[in-house]
Computed example of a mutant assay.
Amino acid sequence: MQAPAGYYPQQPYYAPGWTQAQTQPQRHRGRKIALFATLAVVVLGVLGTVTAAGLYWWGTQPIGDVTSPTSATARQVRAGHCIRDLPADGSVGSVTLVPCSDDHEAEVLGSLRLDDGPWPGDDGAAEAAAWCEMDNDHAAAGYRPVVWTPSRQSWTQGDRVALCIAWLDD
């Protein structure tokens, strides 16, 4: 078969110093992607762990004098703090601390450090309740004692403090 008139075969021309492009299969591309994905997962895991540890640490640091409404975890509350609204019975996540000159429902009277060992459960609550006493002024004003003790979860995280709180439910 002969090429039609005016047809030039499409042969590439390579100038001196140029080379013909070699197409090699990219054998390692899948490995590179897997390595990058693994590295990304590790980096994100480390960042997540550091962030969680930082937030946990921040949530356990005591709060000093309260000059304006401040959100606090139960582990940050100390004697002398006033709590705007006491949460319902059960696990206490966070509360709002207010200056004691503001309207508030409860005052933290004191704290008791519980002994190390296994989680005391009801025994720890009973010990803290026996220790928690209000002064005559609080009792005369109608305050009732409330005791916060560490939950099983917070106990495993090192929480050993029970709080004695004077609560006025009205």
Rank of each mutant, 00 (worst) to 15 (best):
S71N: 14
Q153A: 14
L47K: 08
D169P: 14
G64D: 13
R29V: 15
P16V: 13
G80M: 06
H28C: 09
G158D: 07
D137R: 13
L163G: 06
A52K: 05
V98Q: 02
T156N: 13
G121K: 06
R152I: 06
A166R: 02
V92P: 03
A40D: 00
A74H: 03
S71G: 14
D116R: 09
S151I: 02
A106E: 01
G45S: 03
A5P: 08
G142Q: 08
G59Q: 12
D170C: 01
H138F: 13
D116W: 07
D135E: 03
L109T: 14
V147R: 09
W18E: 13
S101C: 00
T73S: 14
T156V: 06
R27G: 10
T67G: 07
T156A: 12
A162V: 04
G80E: 04
A34H: 02
A162P: 03
T19W: 01
P120N: 10
A52I: 01
Y8P: 00
T23N: 09
S71K: 15
A130R: 15
S111T: 11
W119C: 04
S111R: 06
Q11C: 09
R144G: 08
D169F: 04
F36Q: 10
E105N: 07
E105L: 03
T49L: 14
A53Y: 10
G45H: 02
R75I: 03
R29A: 12
R160S: 04
P62W: 06
V41A: 11
A166D: 04
A125M: 13
A15H: 09
D102Q: 12
D103C: 00
A52M: 07
R78S: 05
Y56W: 14
E105F: 03
E133C: 03
A88I: 11
G158M: 11
R31F: 10
D65G: 11
M134L: 15
A21I: 09
Q10N: 13
P118Q: 08
